[in-house]
């Protein structure tokens, strides 16, 4: 592994431009896709958080404007570092149009207003997926050398086959919810995923989220992530979506706020995105007590689905402890 220390927190806009150039070069055959992940870790320092943007983020996802930075907001703060790894010329998958499959976050303590942080990101688990190729982006955040936050995001490049992929990526298996096929969030048609239909029996809804047509733009404004698939129907269609879709981290942030509103220092959560939440739209949401596999950790299970949909938009879990689901 090589360590690359970035001079500053990268700007997402520049990374998206880089991605567009990469896509053009790829299409023109000027750049042949790499077959393996770059053996590199990107480091960048960030913070302190912009208070006004933090407050806007908190209000958008229904959270009180506390001095503790929401764990989902930490994702948005460190996301440019992970994105800079994916925007590298030697990254084997095209960044544009990648679909967010899942997130897990383990937070030992909250980042606080006024604190600076260091973040490191790298890619691993380049894996064949039935709809393409998936990859894990791991991001770690620390304050003065103290690790406080680890996030793992799994992305899917649809229709891309790489020679260097290792074992098949383990299918997301959110505990207790049926229909856990690894769905491609951005597929145009529900039929693209064999075996997922008819398996989902909606639970009793306990909440309802109205997602306005400007949800994607509002989230972009507070997260800095202006990915076109979230902004408008025309910009989303350019990248193969039916309509604009809600940002996965926006849904995750609302899920965490609903389940653990008091925002404890220690919090862990995971979410699998099974079908896109189209904008505008309404999601039925079920919040239920549950436990982690093995029964050792009590947690809140959250499922969100569009009424009448064949599978959930997302399934997730939240617990007020720092527990890594990968190492129970």
């Amino acid at each position: 592994m090589n360590d690359v220390v970035l001079p500053a927190m990268p700007e997402l806009a520049g990374l998206y431009r880089q991605a567009v150039v990469g896509a053009v070069l790829r299409r023109a055959g000027r750049r042949s896709p790499a077959s393996a992940l770059p053996e590199v870790r990107h480091h960048a320092s960030g913070g302190p958080v912009d208070r006004e943007r933090l407050t806007a983020f908190q209000h958008l996802v229904g959270q009180a404007a506390r001095d503790a930075v929401p764990s989902a907001h930490v994702h948005t703060l460190a996301f440019p570092v992970a994105m800079s790894v994916m925007a590298r010329p030697d990254f084997p998958l095209p960044l544009l149009g990648m679909v967010h499959l899942s997130n897990t976050v383990v937070q030992a303590r909250a980042l606080r207003v006024g604190e600076k942080f260091e973040s490191v990101a790298y890619a691993e688990n380049l894996s064949p997926h039935r709809s393409g190729t998936s990859v894990d982006l791991v991001t770690k955040v620390s304050v003065d050398g103290e690790p406080i936050w680890t996030g793992r995001s799994v992305y899917l490049a649809r229709g891309v086959r790489t020679a260097g992929g290792r074992k098949e990526h383990p299918e997301p298996s959110p505990d207790g919810s049926p229909g856990t096929s690894p769905a491609a969030g951005g597929d145009k048609s529900d039929d693209a995923l064999p075996g997922s239909a008819d398996a989902f029996t909606p639970p009793v809804p306990t909440a309802q989220w109205h997602l306005a047509s400007d949800t994607g733009r509002a989230y972009a404004a507070v997260s800095g992530d202006w990915n076109p698939i979230h902004l408008s129907a025309p910009s989303a269609r350019l990248l193969g979506m039916k309509r604009a879709i809600a940002h996965g981290v926006y849904l995750a942030a609302r899920m965490v706020e609903l389940a653990e509103p008091a925002s404890p220092d220690a919090v862990s959560w995971g979410v699998d995105f099974l079908s896109p939440a189209l904008l505008p739209g309404t999601l039925a949401v079920a919040v239920r007590p549950g436990e982690a596999p093995g029964g050792s950790v009590r947690r809140t299970e959250v499922t969100g689905w569009a009424p009448g949909a064949k599978r959930p938009s997302f399934t997730g879990w939240v617990t007020g402890q720092a527990v890594d689901p990968a190492s129970p």
Binding site: R51, T55, A56, Q58, H59, A64, A65, R66, A262, P264
Partner: peptide, 23 residues
């Protein structure tokens, strides 16, 4: 300036809860 009444009341409650172990 950006904080609502609810934000500030929660912030005051948060501190009280932490101080007296009311979690």
């Amino acid at each position: 300036a950006q904080s609502s009444n609810k934000d500030m009341l929660i912030a005051a409650l948060d501190g009280l809860v932490a101080r007296f172990g009311l979690q």
